[in-house]
Computed example of a mutant assay.
Amino acid sequence: MQVAIDKTSDGNCVFVAVRNSNHFGAAAYYAEMAAQREMIGLVFTIGAINHMAPWGGAEAVLGNNPFAIAFPTPGDFPIVLDMACSVAARGKIIVAAKEGKPIHGDWANGPDRLPTTSAAEALKGFVIRVGGPKGYALTLTIGLLSTMLSGAFFGRDVGDLYEETTEPHNSGHLFGVLPVAAFDEPASYAARVQKAINDIRSVEKAPGVEKIFLPGERESLAKMVQLS
């Protein structure tokens, strides 16, 4: 991401493909690097373990392939989408298994390919994609974006982050930056974003709801509490 940011010095939009990597933590971290510099940041990565089946399949050959997009705003925090393509991350299932706790029935299928509330059985099966066939198409697309330009592993070549700890995984990422100034005056962009935020916040609220939050806002507020 830093390479992408540095290459925008001539005003161009930039994408950087990565291979021979591994699990890189939270995708939002890198997207926010761009947002802090008046750029829209885009981050895509392939998961370092296959634990999702394609739509209509019963074998895991896809990861949950997270991605993040961050928009700079005039406020105290950027608007940040950071999500995987599964209903729940495998890490949450691992924690539940260690603690002997059940999981939600829509998180994963067991080895019998049926939904399960047993975390232990879920780890023998595969996670359930978000949005049915749309989630399958989304995770496939992000996996291709993360690997096809760099030569990183995809499909059956992907290893197991949790079991294969001595072999290189050749995970792939794609980092992109869209400098606001390459499209319009930053002040004009900021005004449009602020109006968009106002439109979202001003909608009639559902019963029991006090505030409409923007993507990434809760995390930003939590970070402020930790730092105070």
Rank of each mutant, 00 (worst) to 15 (best):
M1W: 03
M1G: 11
Q2S: 09
Q2K: 15
V3H: 09
I5H: 08
D6A: 15
T8E: 08
D10T: 12
V14S: 05
V16C: 00
R19C: 11
N20L: 06
N20Y: 05
N22S: 15
F24H: 12
G25Y: 01
A26T: 07
Y29W: 11
M33W: 03
M33D: 04
I40L: 06
V43K: 01
F44T: 00
F44C: 01
G47K: 05
A48Q: 12
I49E: 08
A53I: 04
P54N: 12
G57I: 10
A58Q: 13
L62G: 09
N65C: 07
A68H: 05
I69H: 08
P74Y: 10
G75Y: 14
F77C: 12
V80E: 08
L81A: 13
L81R: 01
L81T: 10
M83A: 12
A88P: 00
I94T: 11
I94H: 08
A96M: 04
A96H: 09
K98Q: 15
K98E: 14
K101N: 13
P102K: 09
P102G: 09
I103L: 11
G105D: 13
D106T: 10
N109F: 14
R113Q: 15
L114C: 14
L114W: 05
T116E: 07
A119F: 02
A120C: 03
E121Y: 00
E121D: 15
A122K: 09
A122G: 06
A122N: 09
I128T: 13
V130L: 15
G131A: 13
G132A: 15
A137T: 13
A137E: 13
A137Q: 14
L138Q: 11
L138Y: 03
L140T: 06
T141C: 10
T141V: 09
L144D: 01
M148E: 01
M148N: 01
A152C: 03
A152N: 03
A152H: 01
G155L: 08
G155E: 02
G155I: 05
V158D: 06
G159Q: 07
D160F: 08
Y162S: 11
Y162I: 11
E163M: 09
P168G: 05
H169L: 14
G172D: 03
G172A: 00
L174P: 03
V177Y: 02
V177Q: 00
P179W: 03
V180C: 04
V180G: 04
V180L: 10
E185N: 07
E185H: 10
P186S: 06
Y189V: 09
A190P: 01
V193S: 04
D199M: 12
S202T: 10
V203A: 13
A206N: 14
P207D: 10
P207E: 10
E210F: 04
K211M: 14
F213A: 12
L214R: 02
E217P: 04
R218T: 06
V225D: 09
Q226P: 00
L227R: 15
S228I: 05
